[in-house]
C-alpha cells in the first residue's frame, strides 16, 4: 500500500498543531485545535483508500482492481458533517462564555477548588464527641435533666465534654461504657421530656 507523502506530512503537521492548540487555555484556540485534529483524521482516512488516479466511476471496461475505494470517502463525508456540527456548537458555547464572563478562557471548577481546600479534619466525623443530633439525647444518664454539657457551657472537662452522672462527672468518651444494662449509674430518667434542649 503506497501513501502520498505530501498528504502524510500535512497530516502530521495538522496533528501537531492541533494537539498544541487544544492544550491552550483560550477557548477559540481549543476550537481551532479540535478542527485541525478532525481534518488530520480525515486525511488519515483518505490515505487508507489507496493511491490517487484510480477509476472513481463505473465503466464496464475497467478491471475490478482498478477502481478507487469509495468507502473511505463516505466515511470522510460523515465525519466532516459531524465535525461541522460540533464546531458550530462549540462556537455557540464560546459566544455564551463571552456573554456571561467577558472572557474567552476555560474556567476553573469552583467546587473542585473548594473540595481541595477542605481540611482533612471533619468536625462532624473526627471531633472527640459529636454534637448530639438524635431525637433521643443521652439525658437518661442524668438525674437532674441537665444531660450533656458541652465545654462551651462553662463546666470544663479535659477533653472538651463531660456528662453529669448522678453525683459525679464522667468524661464524654466513657459514657458509652457506662450505658450498660447493669450499670449502677443508670437511674430512671426524669419525668420531664428532653434534656436541656
Amino acid at each position: 500500500m503506497s501513501v502520498n507523502l505530501t498528504l502524510l506530512t500535512v497530516m502530521g503537521a495538522l496533528y501537531a498543531c492541533g494537539i498544541y492548540l487544544i492544550l491552550e487555555r483560550s477557548l477559540t484556540r481549543v476550537l481551532l485545535g479540535l478542527m485541525l485534529l478532525a481534518n488530520a483524521t480525515n486525511l488519515l482516512i483518505l490515505a487508507t483508500g489507496g493511491y490517487a488516479g484510480l477509476a472513481p466511476l463505473y465503466n464496464k471496461d475497467t478491471a475490478p482492481g482498478e477502481y478507487n475505494d469509495p468507502l473511505p470517502q463516505a466515511l470522510i463525508l460523515t465525519s466532516i458533517v459531524i465535525s461541522f456540527a460540533v464546531t458550530a456548537f462549540m462556537l455557540g458555547i464560546i459566544y455564551r462564555t463571552w456573554v456571561l464572563a467577558r472572557q474567552d478562557e476555560i474556567q476553573d471548577d469552583a467546587e473542585d477548588r473548594r473540595v481541595a481546600k477542605t481540611p482533612s479534619f471533619d468536625a462532624e466525623d473526627d471531633s472527640v464527641i459529636p454534637v448530639e443530633t438524635s431525637e433521643f439525647p443521652l439525658t437518661m444518664l442524668g438525674t437532674d435533666g441537665e444531660g450533656i454539657s458541652d465545654s462551651q457551657d462553662g463546666a470544663s472537662g479535659a477533653s472538651g465534654a463531660t456528662v453529669k452522672v448522678g453525683d459525679r462527672k464522667l468524661e464524654a468518651d466513657e459514657t458509652a461504657s457506662e450505658e450498660q444494662p447493669g450499670s449502677l449509674n443508670v437511674t430512671p430518667p426524669p419525668s420531664q421530656e428532653g434534656g436541656g434542649r
Binding site: 487544544i22 477557548l27 481549543v30 479540535l34 460540533v86 456548537f89 462549540m90 458555547i93 455564551r96 462564555t97 456571561l100 476555560i106 474556567q107 471548577d109
Partner: peptide, 10 residues
C-alpha cells in the same frame, strides 16, 4: 453549565 459543558465537549 457552560463551564462544565466546555470540559465535556472537548
Amino acid at each position: 453549565r457552560i463551564r462544565a459543558g466546555v470540559t465535556y465537549v472537548v
